[in-house]
Design a protein around this nucleic acid. Structure first.
Lengths: 164, 164
DNA sequence: ATTGATTTGTTGACATGTCAATCATGCACA
DNA sequence: TGTGCATGATTGACATGTCAACAAATCAAT
């Protein structure tokens, strides 16, 4: 494809290093904060947060997977564990015998209500507070553009269904 | 800690969603590209890239772990696999009988030379090309500031050694 | 020198994620 | 209405990461 690779110059390398460190470190830092201050892991929080945004706290597994952009098997494994912990419950789906409705239990609701303030504070204190308005806006548009570019290259999707 | 949580408003939620998706999706997209175009996973590439930057292509395991900010056991497990694949070799360390020197093999060198152009192209095409100069600079400073903030909060380190 | 703490690295148990295979159900269309 | 394909979800094998326990070597302080 390219025998004439455009390598990164000194300045570009620094930008790339800063971005790479952020991408590698941010998620685990967020997880550490969550686990320290609540009993939820980052992925468990994600699922419960998705359920919270549904009106009645119930979603089909399919829709959770889509909302989080996860593989089905990943969600399936996680739901099994969360069910064992009593954070969610599953009921059969009336309209489609293949599906399941996932709902938050009282314990799940309690857990996310307890975890949410610390999580939001983490984001506010470490993302919004340190940035100027211009930096925040530029970060927004940069993140959006980078994602769009990767999507256009066909490398974003988890299971790139090659239409061959 | 805070009964008066400063929740995110609509605009902030959008910024946060864009950043979260980038952080969750970028690394796996990069891994997909690497595995598609070479025989290296992202973590294997990281180790070989670190070794490439040492003059003689040899580093102590300790220094690799520090350069990548990884846990020792993670590196140990990975090096065992990479050694089995013939990508790296280990020799005893003369100056410190506890340590090991890790070196690239010819196969490891060949693999990273083969993988590097595509990897650099991925970064250039998806990070630098889509951004204006201003956005790139803002991204740089935003990433730096966010990391600094998390570090100041004591949540960055992998093994936060609590000095209790 | 001896003792005790620190550093370096490995190991095993376990948590989590990916992938391919499987199964049942639903749907489209002749 | 049946036949074939698409969808929803689970499972098991495997890859990878975390954590705590361990062992050996080094260092520091007396």
């Amino acid at each position: 494809m390219s025998s004439d690779t455009r390598w990164l110059d000194k300045g570009e390398q620094e930008v790339w290093r800063a971005l790479r460190e952020l991408i590698w470190g941010f998620e685990s830092a967020m997880d550490r904060q969550l686990i320290r201050d609540s009993e939820l892991s980052g992925v468990e929080y994600s699922v419960l947060a998705a359920l919270s945004e549904a009106e009645d706290g119930v979603m089909r597994a399919r829709d959770i997977a889509q909302a989080l952009d996860w593989e089905r098997s990943r969600l399936s494994h996680l739901l099994k564990r969360m069910e064992a912990k009593g954070l969610v419950a599953r009921t059969e789906c009336e309209s489609d015998a293949r599906g399941f409705n996932i709902s938050m239990t009282a314990a799940g609701h309690k857990a996310i209500v307890r975890a949410a303030p610390g999580h939001v504070s983490f984001v506010r204190e470490n993302v919004f507070d340190p940035l100027t308005d211009d930096e925040r806006d530029a970060l927004h548009s940069a993140a959006t553009k980078i994602q769009a570019s990767i999507r256009a290259a066909g490398l974003w999707e988890n299971r790139g269904a090659p239409k061959s």
